[in-house]
């Protein structure tokens, strides 16, 4: 068991190193920003004296590595600085929106993961049938569709004057909706994300199971007279778990970042919307904070995928 712990520790360390380099890239980005940071904050009308005073106050006159260390210590303590646009603390801006984005991503995952597993198993069971071909073709097309196309088709079909669902999720930012209200308002964004990720997960599930179907022990089970459903669920699925877990985690990581476009379409008050607004305004501290959080979530999910895939394989757990 100890080498599993060692492996997890190694992966964690690697993830930390990655995050460190990411923070370095994000910080250096600000350094490369053309023009003076203090000038940028104060605008065109600032006198040279006020600019110099602000530079002093922000510590911009210190050498680069000292400022980087200061910035990093602040972030580790949860202080992301202040927004250039409105002077609010970035941590405060991010906090509530992070929860909203995670809610949306888990809502979509709660639909997409079971759906794609069931569809993948069915496609493997009825392979080369009409159902299988239809599922494959729609998977290929849904990968090629831009997210906003899927989103607007859903709005066109399910929202509008006499539709069952609201076409924007802007109400979430106004009141604090209760659970059922939230499910109703956020249904279309969640469904869009579901449609975007389901195809890939389904295809990989099908491929992972079909890969195993030619192995001798499956042949044996078939000759014993087991039903095809039982062969797949009882015998093939446990061995196909590792690739399936991997692709599920990858798609969850995609969900975290894929929310950007979907949030903008549905005016959903999440991190992605915040990031797009801040990029347009070149509000560097906010973009840095959000990018760091997105990168952190992405790295963490990839790491979880690695560890879980290893744990699901007894040969790797009980290695001699």
């Amino acid at each position: 068991m100890s080498h599993i712990l060692t492996m997890i520790a190694q992966r964690l360390a690697l993830g930390l190193v990655t995050l460190f380099v990411v923070s370095l890239i994000i910080f250096l980005g600000t350094e490369l920003l053309p023009g003076d940071f203090a000038q940028e904050i104060l605008g065109q009308s600032a006198t040279p004296e006020t600019v110099a005073a602000l530079r002093e106050q922000l510590g911009l006159n210190d050498p680069m590595h000292i400022r980087y260390l200061g910035w990093l210590t602040d972030i580790v303590q949860g202080d992301f600085g202040e927004s250039l646009a409105n002077g609010q603390s970035v941590a405060g801006l991010i906090g509530g929106r992070l929860v909203r984005t995670l809610q949306l991503a888990s809502y979509a995952a709660a639909i997409a993961v079971p759906l794609s597993l069931v569809l993948g198993i069915l496609a493997a069971l009825f392979r080369n049938s009409f159902f299988d071909r239809f599922a494959n073709a729609s998977a290929l097309s849904s990968i090629s569709f831009p997210e906003f196309f899927v989103a607007y088709i859903l709005i066109f079909l399910l929202a509008g004057a006499n539709g069952a669902f609201p076409s924007t999720a802007i109400n979430i930012s106004r009141g604090d909706p209760n659970f059922t209200e939230y499910l109703h308002v956020a249904f279309l964004p969640a469904l869009t994300l579901t449609l975007v990720v389901t195809a890939h997960m389904m295809r990989m599930t099908r491929a992972a199971i079909i890969n195993l179907l030619s192995s001798p022990y499956i042949e044996m089970a078939r000759l014993k007279g087991m039903s095809p459903m039982r062969i797949i669920v009882k015998h093939a699925l446990p061995n196909a778990l590792a690739p399936i877990i991997n692709v599920v985690a990858l798609n969850l990581a995609y969900l975290i970042t894929g929310v950007v476009v979907v949030e903008v379409v549905f005016v959903y008050p999440g991190l992605g919307q915040l990031m797009v607004d801040s990029v347009a305004a070149r509000d560097m501290p906010v973009v840095q904070g959000v990018a760091l959080i997105f990168a952190g979530a992405y790295v963490l999910l990839n790491l979880t995928a690695d560890v879980l895939a290893t744990l699901s394989n007894p040969r790797l757990v009980h290695r001699r």
């Binding site: 990655t18 380099v21 980005g29 490369l32 950007v260 990018a291 997105f294 790295v299």
Partner: peptide, 19 residues
């Protein structure tokens, strides 16, 4: 390391930097 940052987020970050 570059691939550890999600592509769209990275693009948005770089676009903020360079305009």
């Amino acid at each position: 390391v570059l691939m550890a940052i999600p592509a769209l987020i990275f693009a948005l970050l770089l676009l903020t930097i360079v305009g």
